[in-house]
Design a protein around this nucleic acid. Structure first.
Lengths: 351, 351
DNA sequence: TCATGACGATCGCAAATTTCT
DNA sequence: CAGAAATTTGCGATCGTCATG
């Protein structure tokens, strides 16, 4: 059980001092090229592995950043993860990762632990219900002046950077598309829990309805978990209404996929008998049967920009906090079309 | 710009020594209850944050484990991530995460860096083409006696623990199901690149065909990326054959979903005009239109067991390496059914 | 003066050791 | 001399300072 070699091991072997080894391994010109290569060869031969704990202790920066997400089962969020991981890897930083499961206590613990680990910054999709106090209160004093960027979800009045999607615009694009097709009876299947995203999208939906002079029937407004099962389970209820909606606007693609599954079972043809829209435009949206009309949230832009902001903060940028909104794009596919002729809805069963 | 408080800061404030503070914060009984609480209050008041670099340097264990995956866009792999993250969080360990994008150089760099960061162990889905030398060669000497568990994919002859799915059994379950339904012309859409999973599943498929006395037509055997696009693009080609297959066996759910999308476009009814099977049984399989027949890979069991093994190794377990296979389960849904009557294939178009 | 590299202090914490009641 | 408390040492790397040819 030989211990891991250290700078001293190498130094003894080569016959120089520890600091010479330290410099040599970092290619410092103060060490001559010949001794440098002798040292580097010895390090290689000994199987030396750099110890960042020690270096970090001395230097202050451990070379990690922390990322905390909430819903790994939703591919939409793992898209963020992918983009950011790439950016941080390119910047030579490792990622401390946490899956908070929408649980405040997990998030709180992680915020403390990543600080203990010396993470240089944090990217956070705040768990639902996260308030300003959770990020700036006395229990998280270490976050003061700490590089922290919120993505995807906003937290009101906070003094941290935020990079989010322009949900209002997204909903407007969808509404205008459906309205132009002739839809007047629209249902809303909300999700996203108690987050800014949930509130912004629903509020925007209501506002668009109002602005268009369309009445909002509570029986067509629902909120539930952001899951396939929720979308799947709500279709029957909506179609059982005296005057069922001709279009269903879903909080997210995941919910919309659930609605499509239910449509299939009922023999309803999405885009013909009923229009369905998603939100996020995750990769799978182009391959549902039929392909889903959705709003593309630019996870790439958001992830890149958030990483960039964070790295700048880590590098010492002290600008006032920004709140940036990335513009989403409407992607029209096959699940939207003109409403069926009134009263002519043909609920064929498949077979 | 006041610096972060340290044990010394607290010690000075309370008027005790640094070691007293160290012990008190760890609730050591050697410090009297009263001073202990005085110290803890002072720590709280000062906003003290534990420094694991320093502690880790002294103790040897940094409290992290590393996880390296390859395909975040495939929800199947993020299922692993979720299970393991939970287990490690419960064990009080943070996760250093890497997305290797099937790129050996990224994986190699991560294997080094996580060691530099003092990760206590590593869970790895090896990138395609990873060989024994990549894990045990001279360039990765630090992996000798290092807690490392491979999941999902095997690496031949390696001396590390592995927890993988029993792919042979999975394919057999699918084949037997299709055979019993009456299918005799089966196509294979392979994926998974150059991994043990890819090889095992295809080999098993061929073996089942052979064992049943069914000829294997090269025109029905394909290999491509594990993507929706691949499945989507292959259907036309397969159906254009003189005698098209009556069933398509896909390497994974993702590919199968692509096939379903193409079926929809062609007006082919999965489960009636053509049978389609997936593999993995990710969450979305139950909600495709129609719902996908698949083989459930127990990501929960694999993830849990791998975490458990790793934690045991970290705790000092020196048992010989194990290779454990978790049994998958057939999940019959709607995309499989008896083959259509010969020659009676009705390629209706939707509309 | 310059190039090279030796020396010792230091980071924050924890464990071993010593000193004090 | 037992037990509590204070002191010292050292983890592994980095950095400023100093010495040598």
């Amino acid at each position: 059980m030989t211990r891991r070699p250290t700078l001293k091991t190498i130094a003894d072997r080569v016959g120089v001092t520890v600091s010479a080894v330290s410099l040599a391994l970092r290619d410092d010109p103060r060490i001559s090229a010949t001794t440098r290569s002798r040292i580097q060869e010895a390090a290689e031969a000994l199987g030396y592995v750099y110890n960042r704990h020690a270096a970090g202790l001395r230097r202050g920066d451990s070379g990690t950043v922390a990322v905390c997400l909430n819903d790994l089962s939703n591919p939409f969020f793992t898209e963020f993860l992918g983009h950011m991981e790439t950016r941080f890897r390119e910047a030579g930083r490792m990622m401390l990762f946490c899956h908070a499961h929408e649980t405040p206590s997990i998030q709180a613990r992680f915020i403390r632990q990543m600080a203990e680990h010396g993470a240089a910054g944090l990217i956070l999709v705040p768990v639902e219900g996260t308030s300003r106090a959770d990020l700036e209160g006395p229990r998280v004093r270490h976050l003061r002046d700490f590089p922290l960027v919120l993505i995807s979800r906003d937290v009101a009045d906070t003094a941290f950077d935020r990079v989010i999607n322009d949900d209002e615009r997204g909903i407007r694009l969808l509404f205008e598309h459906l309205y132009a097709l002739g839809h007047r009876r629209l249902a809303w299947l909300g999700g996203g829990g108690d987050t800014s995203t949930a509130h912004d999208r629903e509020r925007s939906f209501r506002r668009e309805m109002d602005a268009a002079g369309l009445p909002i029937d509570d029986a067509t407004m629902h909120h539930g978990p952001t899951s396939l099962a929720f979308g799947d389970s709500m279709l029957d209820e909506l179609m059982a209404l005296p005057t069922p909606p001709t279009a269903i606007v879903c909080f997210s693609d995941v919910i919309a996929f659930g609605v499509l599954a239910a449509c299939y079972r009922r023999g309803l043809r999405p885009g013909i008998d009923l229009s369905v829209t998603g939100f996020d435009d995750m990769g799978a949206a182009a391959y549902s049967a039929p392909a889903l009309t959705s709003v593309r949230v630019r996870t790439d832009l958001i992830g890149d920009r958030a990483s960039e902001l964070l790295l700048a903060r880590i590098a010492g940028d002290r600008q006032p906090a920004v709140r940036e909104m990335m513009p989403p794009e409407l992607v029209v596919r096959e699940t939207t079309g003109p409403p069926p002729e009134t009263g002519m809805l043909p609920p064929r069963r498949r077979g």
